[in-house]
C-alpha cells in the first residue's frame, strides 16, 4: 500500500485540522517542517467536517481546507462532509 499525504501551512487553524485528522485517522504520521505540517498515512486518509467543527468550535466548510492546504497526494474525493485521499493499489 502506498502513502497518501497532505501538507498544511503551519498556522493556528491548521493545528485544529491536524488534531481532527489525527482523531479520525489514528494511523497517521505528522511531520513538522519549516512553516509546514505534513500528514501521511498508508493508503487512505479522511478530513471530516464534523470533527474539524468540533475542534474549532465553529462552522467549517470542507473547501475552507484549501485556504491552508499546500499539497496533497492520492485520489481526491470531496463532498459536503469530508475530503478523502486514497490510492487504489
Amino acid at each position: 500500500m502506498s502513502k497518501v499525504y497532505l501538507a498544511l501551512q503551519d498556522n493556528d487553524v491548521s493545528r485544529y485540522i491536524v488534531e481532527a485528522i489525527e482523531e479520525d485517522n489514528p494511523e497517521v504520521t505528522v511531520i513538522h517542517n519549516p512553516a509546514m505540517i505534513r500528514i501521511e498515512a498508508e493508503g487512505h486518509m479522511v478530513v471530516k467536517r464534523e470533527t474539524v467543527e468540533e475542534k474549532l468550535g465553529r462552522d467549517w466548510e470542507v473547501p475552507e481546507l484549501h485556504l491552508n492546504l499546500i499539497t496533497l497526494g492520492g485520489n481526491v474525493d470531496e463532498d459536503d462532509d469530508q475530503l478523502s485521499l486514497s490510492w487504489n493499489s
Partner: peptide, 24 residues
C-alpha cells in the same frame, strides 16, 4: 518554500504557500 522560510524570506514563503493552496 520551506527553504525560503528557513532563510527568513517571509514574502516568498507566503506567496509560495499561498500559490500552493491552488496547486492542490
Amino acid at each position: 518554500m520551506s527553504g525560503a522560510a528557513y532563510n527568513g524570506d517571509m514574502a516568498t514563503v507566503t506567496f509560495g504557500f499561498s500559490a500552493q493552496s491552488d496547486e492542490a
